[in-house]
Write a protein that binds this DNA or RNA. Structure first.
Ligand code: MN
Ligand code: MN
Ligand code: ZN
Ligand code: ZN
Lengths: 144, 144
DNA sequence: ATTGAAATTGATAAACTGTCTCAAAATTAT
DNA sequence: ATAATTTTGAGACAGTTTATCAATTTCAAT
């Protein structure tokens, strides 16, 4: 465990240092759980961690996942009814294909689309900071 | 008022007819208000209509705007914290540029992007039903 | 190692948005 | 007009996330 997720841990520590925040047992725990999962919700992580740490509060998980967003490790996504926290620390930015049949999520990047987005923005005098592209449909399996 | 929004009124009536729903004073009122605004929230409309119709219930507005979505006149968007109802009756499908400085929203269409989306989906075995593309950034005015 | 200021936590209350309930009212077909 | 059916409005309720605050933990300075 000391060998895994070192880079992300460093990134977190750097953010903490810059904002006079502290490194706690909970933050380490939640980071480790976060990096082990994709597109996880705060509640899902709460129940998952409750098995080994029954007293970890839900509020702490929300706070910490939001902290990861501030630190640039995570990004909040609004697919279903609950916010999903997406790991963007090792992968860079990416967008999503979402199957409305089985909830499967496929990540993709397409720099041609990204380029055209810039073009559209420029044409309207905008400077893009972020964007969100989600394609909803049916995967192969669910189409049959 | 009899001359305006006739087409949308017809579309609504057609949907009502097909689903044994009734045409009420509230539905006419809310349709008219809806077509007068862009990207409006249920609450904003509630307060707006309260001036002339203090007893129009918030639930009725939510129900009716959702009805418009079913009828294909409206589309729910999730920009801010509240759902915005977007008029798609006369315009067709479109995506959005959103200024995080002044909340300005610019609509755009780009069939090249749409085509590339299809391509990405196909490559992953998906059949797209809908999609959502939102570009967040600063407009000309807010950049200075 | 101890101290103490500052940040964090966990439990829970509260906020917020949207839907559900249900009796009363309105609509539409007969 | 009558009656069957749908709709409405008021408020209760539900789901998700944030705020509150006393107790605990961290960490920098002794
Ligand atoms: Mn992702
Ligand atoms: Mn729009
Ligand atoms: Zn599927
Ligand atoms: Zn602006």
């Amino acid at each position: 465990m000391a060998t895994k997720h070192v880079k992300e841990m460093e990134a977190l520590k750097e953010h903490l240092g810059k904002h006079q925040l502290k490194l706690t047992r909970q933050r380490e725990l939640i980071l480790s759980a976060f990096l082990r999962q994709e597109h996880i919700t705060a509640e899902a992580m709460y129940h998952q961690l409750a098995k080994s740490d029954p007293h970890l509060g839900l509020a702490t998980i929300y706070r910490t996942l939001n902290l990861f967003c501030d630190a640039g490790l995570a990004q909040a996504r609004h697919f279903g009814s609950q916010t999903k926290y997406d790991n963007v620390s090792h992968k860079g930015h990416h967008d999503h294909l979402i199957c409305t049949g089985c909830e499967k999520i496929v990540e993709f990047e397409n720099e041609e689309i990204e380029r055209l987005q810039e073009e559209v923005a420029t044409r309207h005098g905008f400077t893009i900071k972020t964007h969100r592209l989600e394609l909803y449909g049916l995967c192969t399996r669910c189409r049959d």
